[in-house]
Design a protein around this nucleic acid. Structure first.
Length: 427
RNA sequence: GGAGAGAUGGCCGAGCGGCUGAAGGCGCACGCUUGGAAAGCGUGUAUAGGCAACCCCUAUCCAGGGUUCGAAUCCCUGUCUCUCCGCCA
């Protein structure tokens, strides 16, 4: 949620920022609501003051055994008026709040203005994308099915399309990846591991920004009005919902494995085969709660921590900085990490590292208490995938394939996986 | 799912319809004390909104309604937590 101060002090800047983000919001209507709201508050507070003074005087008299009927008689109109104004104020504030929740987070000034994902500048490339070899490169589906790593047909039978069933070495490889990443973040990068609920309520989704606008993208368990998480960002960010954290405890860094569920409504078609776009996938997520002054440094180290995973697995990747129009609803700045998949001959997004500044903190009422004893302030939240498998698995298979169709397991993964290769003989 | 108990500040915990934004304790911050520390002593310490304003005003004792001139305190509804029983990985 944006700070309502924007509306009073810099409505023009807000309008421009929202245009850059490619969203149209009726800023004038918000400004009007805010003004009317404040006018009513001024009036009704003054009336309440009068009422309180009279009540106090009544109490004074009663204590001395005197009659106070004349004073009580004076409150009649006052009370009616207060009731009416309070009712109107309440409606107005609810309306204002609801509207404010639909306003996206403006981008940080450093973010390049642009509309289309194709405009996202590449800020870094690591490793050599594998283009040509002396044998024909297969894609992950061909490799995996031959090796019995997964079974899409049966996954579809069990649930429907986009719900992968991992089998044998594939299941183990997936588990190895998750453990490898969690260990790296906890042992090397200083994160605290958590294992969150996979179902969340509406309040939690409002904090992180999926609600109220993206309800259609999620799976809903209707009877209990709970949603399957699209990312561990949701439960983990809400760990500190409605809390005031002492400054000395910041930064807080969490890492969590979770399955992620996304309906991906409207994205059927090509580019969705195999693991490229599925409804359920596994992801190790990193979430940070930090002091505002440090959040952009923390974004860089967050990205570094995600890159570390890819480098340890020796996978070529590139980093994109998202232009204003490609930023998500809640993000002020975001980097995407993409792995090269030689079998698919394309880059696959495996991580998004974002700074939300105080946008989520304001929605979830997450604050910190400064050392100096000042009043609590909203802190800044960040999160990044560290990283999303399914696509990570795709890249590992395609980058480490051998002429005979077997897979060389990346060295860093061997101790987790328990073997150096995956071949058809093992199956 | 059935029965009962409860929800007060960062935490614990008191609270008669008015003088209670809320006793007391803990914690925390600062100061005194000390060679240094502990102990001890003193002072301070909720949040939000309005306002130029740390003065002031308004609101907040789970949430929403109600009674009343006045509600943490009385009434109704809801939510959540705990205990016991049932079911269950």
């Amino acid at each position: 949620m944006i700070d309502a101060k924007w509306l009073r002090e810099r409505p023009e800047a807000l309008r421009q920022a929202l245009t850059d983000k490619g969203v149209s919001v009726d800023v004038d209507a918000l400004v009007r609501m805010d003004q009317e709201r404040r006018e009513i508050i001024i009036t009704v507070d003054a009336l309440k003051q009068q009422r309180n003074e009279i009540s106090k005087a009544v109490g004074e008299r009663k204590r001395q055994g005197e009659n106070a009927d004349d004073l009580i008689a004076r409150t009649g109109d006052l009370i009616e008026e207060i009731k009416a104004l309070d009712t109107r104020l309440k409606e107005l504030e609810a309306d204002f709040e609801q509207t404010l929740l639909t306003v996206p987070n403006p981008a940080h000034p450093s973010v390049p203005v642009g509309q289309d994902p194709s405009e996202n500048p590449v800020v870094r490339t690591w490793g050599e994308p594998l283009e040509a070899t002396d044998f024909p490169l297969k894609n992950h589906l061909e490799l995996g099915e031959a090796l019995g790593l997964f079974d899409f047909a049966r996954g579809t039978k069990i649930t429907g399309t986009g719900f992968p069933l991992y089998t044998g070495a594939g299941a183990k490889l997936e588990r190895a990846l998750i453990n490898f990443m969690l260990d790296m973040h906890t042992q090397k990068h200083g994160y605290t591991e958590v294992f969150p609920p996979f179902l969340v309520n509406r309040t939690s989704l409002t904090t992180t920004g999926q609600l109220p606008k993206m309800e259609e993208d999620m799976y809903l368990a209707q009877v209990d009005d709970l949603f399957l998480i699209p990312t561990a960002e949701v439960p983990v960010t809400n760990i500190h919902q409605d809390e005031i954290i002492p400054e000395k405890e910041l930064p807080l860094r969490y890492t969590a494995y979770s399955a992620c569920f996304r309906r991906e409504a409207g994205s059927y078609g090509k580019e969705t085969h195999g693991f490229l776009r599925v409804h359920q996938f596994n992801k190790v997520e990193m979430v940070k709660f930090v002091r505002p002054e440090t959040s952009y440094d923390e974004l860089e180290t967050l990205r570094r921590d995600a890159e570390d995973v890819l480098e340890a697995l020796n996978l070529p990747y590139r980093v994109l900085e998202l232009v204003t129009g490609d930023l998500s609803f809640a993000a002020a700045k975001c980097y995407d990490l993409e792995l090269w998949a030689p079998g698919e001959k394309r880059w696959l997004e495996v991580s998004s590292c974002s700074n939300f500044e105080d946008f989520q903190a304001r929605r979830g009422n997450i604050r910190y208490k400064p050392r100096t004893g000042e009043k609590p302030h909203y802190l800044h939240t960040l999160n990044g995938s560290g990283v999303a498998t399914a696509r990570l698995l795709v890249a590992i298979l395609e980058n480490n394939q051998q002429p005979d169709g077997s897979i060389q397991v990346p060295e860093a993964l061997v101790s987790y996986f328990g073997a150096e290769t995956i071949s058809a003989d093992d199956a």
